[in-house]
Computed example of a mutant assay.
Amino acid sequence: MNLSLRQVRYIATVADTGSIAAAARQCRIAHSSILAALSQAEAEAGARLFDRRPSRGVELTPAGDHFVASARRLLAAEAEFDRTLDRHTVGMPPVLRIGCFEPFGALFMPELLRRFTQGVDVEIELHEGEQPQLVDWLEANVVDAIVTYDIGPRLPDDATILAKVPAHALIRADDPLAQRSVVCLSELAQRPFILLDLPQSSAWLLALFDAAGPRPRIAFRTRSYETVRAAVVCGFGFSILNMKPIGRGSPDSDEVIRKPISDDVPVPRLMVADRYGAAKPLFLRRFTNVAQAFFNEVGPELTMARS
């Protein structure tokens, strides 16, 4: 195919934005350059790549879907080639791009990354997002690796497991349940629930109650881990979380208590994943090793609840 990488990128941008005009703005080129690249690509492919919808942008055809999937793999390979040159020059990328499940940014990622970059002059670019976003970023070469739970589709099969992270209840210190060594879901379900309302996480948290009886009434929804803690302190109800602050992570207020759950519930695992498989670059092998050592060291903190 006689398309240049630049033209391939133009077409991938049309697919991402859903509009030729939006792609032209994002690529900072003339509208005609996008049309020229598209016409040449369709001539080479022998098929229409997009259906034009007046006033509604464009939509990929089956042939276009196949073309763009291949284009993204090609562009990811180009980006990795550039990254490889960077690694050969300085031994490590000048910018380390790590994705993590959104709450992890405040709970432990800075400490983990500090250990990894100790003595190395490197810029950290931390991408905090939802589970589906993380996989998208990994596949699009936006990040070098992701740290997340093993929940949801499309996660790499060869991810490295760092720790098991059982669910626990977060309740106010003056709640009668705070005197218990463990709590059960049927009792918690009688109280209003503060939901960490992130995609996949919210469905997973609510499903925990299905085997124990009715789901609790949701009194408060938030996408923020910190807001969940504040809402518990302010008396909106209880919450269920998997992770707690580790090391230098922001500690809990004395007004909240974490309690293990007695029910037999699924235990998610914390993992680090990349897209390199057996060809993992040296710096990512080291990052994985540092992450494993970090969680081996703090392991007891993941399951111990303050009583």
Rank of each mutant, 00 (worst) to 15 (best):
D121I: 04
S253K: 14
D158K: 14
Y225W: 08
Q179W: 01
F50L: 03
L270C: 13
D65S: 14
V143F: 05
I34A: 04
P199D: 06
D82A: 10
L38K: 04
P260R: 09
S19Q: 01
A45L: 11
P176L: 11
L282R: 10
G129E: 08
M1I: 05
D174S: 05
F220Y: 12
R223C: 00
F81S: 15
V233L: 02
E59I: 11
A47D: 11
M304I: 10
E297M: 04
S4D: 00
S262A: 15
Q292L: 14
A293H: 05
N289A: 15
E187H: 13
F116V: 01
G64K: 12
L134S: 03
G213D: 10
L162F: 10
M304Q: 09
A291V: 06
A24D: 03
I194D: 08
P94I: 01
L198M: 06
S186C: 12
R275D: 14
Q292E: 09
T303Y: 01
P132C: 01
L126W: 02
A15L: 11
G105A: 13
R97P: 01
P281D: 05
Q40C: 06
Q40D: 12
I146C: 05
A23M: 02
V142H: 05
R258F: 08
A140G: 12
D157C: 07
T61H: 05
G18I: 08
I20G: 02
R52P: 00
R275W: 08
F294S: 07
G152Q: 03
R114F: 10
A278R: 11
S70N: 06
C234W: 06
P62G: 00
S55Y: 05
A189M: 13
P245N: 04
R258L: 10
V142S: 03
S70C: 02
L49V: 02
R258I: 12
